[in-house]
Design a protein around this nucleic acid. Structure first.
Lengths: 136, 136
DNA sequence: GGTATATATTAGAATTAATCCAAATCTAAA
DNA sequence: TTTAGATTTGGATTAATTCTAATATATACC
């Protein structure tokens, strides 16, 4: 499977993001393929690839990417936020045993969910939150 | 509107929860009416009503109530968990400006949501997470 | 080039929700 | 009572995230 984004520099510039070396390096990790990563996982991946970057910059960059629409935040519990490189609307399965998030393809429906469960899992709960903000 | 639960002691016992005084007092707050409260809000309400209870007990009790099916947890961001006294399946609007959660009645649907928005608000995002756990 | 100006990065401290812990307290039954 | 088990407690701890203030980097103007 080819990377979601071929040219990180180009991708960032088009989103109005100044393509610094750290941002390009993190983009390289995030947009390599569709995946779900926590800030800490991004930080560790960067470190293991020899990229010199601080935790603060990882958080700054992830927030910037979210703000600019390159990433989507998904809240699964009180202490974990995943950053999803797939920004198209879709739903997720969060496995509380594994601590991992997987995509559910198709549209949500009460009975549909039960037929699309990852093999060997059972539903623990469904959270639907529509986040709104006050108009202008 | 009458309280969701008339007799807290009875409600707890029926759920297999030992109805200690702290638990009855917290139940009195939580099941007074349908509402969305954070652990801290429950703690503050209890304090302002003169109930002698520790933070640890508030957390213990909320977790116990969730475990026993009296409350439902809803994750809206990385540092806030609301405890909902309405355990029937339903969806929510989370206002990021106000930091409050309100009910959306009816079933979720892409176009439906837009017609049920709280007055003066716009959609910021929709999070749907189906939490699963490994079978047995 | 050289200097000013704005932006980005950094390490470490601070914050905050939530949990953990070991000691103290309560309760029910014998 | 005595005892055993469950509950509550305050304070310490954890972990994700943000803040801060100093440093570094890049762009613009002369």
């Amino acid at each position: 499977m080819s990377p979601v984004v071929q040219d990180a520099r180009e991708h960032l510039s088009r989103a109005g993001i100044y393509p610094t070396s750290q941002r390009r390096a993190l983009a390289g990790i995030l947009f390599d393929r569709h995946q779900h990563l926590t800030a800490d996982q991004v930080f560790e991946k960067a470190r293991s690839k020899g990229i010199r970057v601080s935790r603060a910059t990882v958080y700054n960059t992830l927030n910037l990417f979210v703000e600019k629409g390159l990433l989507r935040e998904i809240f699964v519990n009180a202490t974990h936020t995943f950053y999803d490189s797939n920004i198209h609307p879709h739903f997720h399965f969060y496995n509380v045993d594994e601590g991992c998030l997987t995509d559910m393809d198709g549209r949500i429906a009460d009975d549909l969910i039960l037929h699309k469960l990852p093999h060997g899992t059972v539903v623990e709960g469904v959270d639907v939150v529509v986040r709104v903000r006050n108009h202008s």
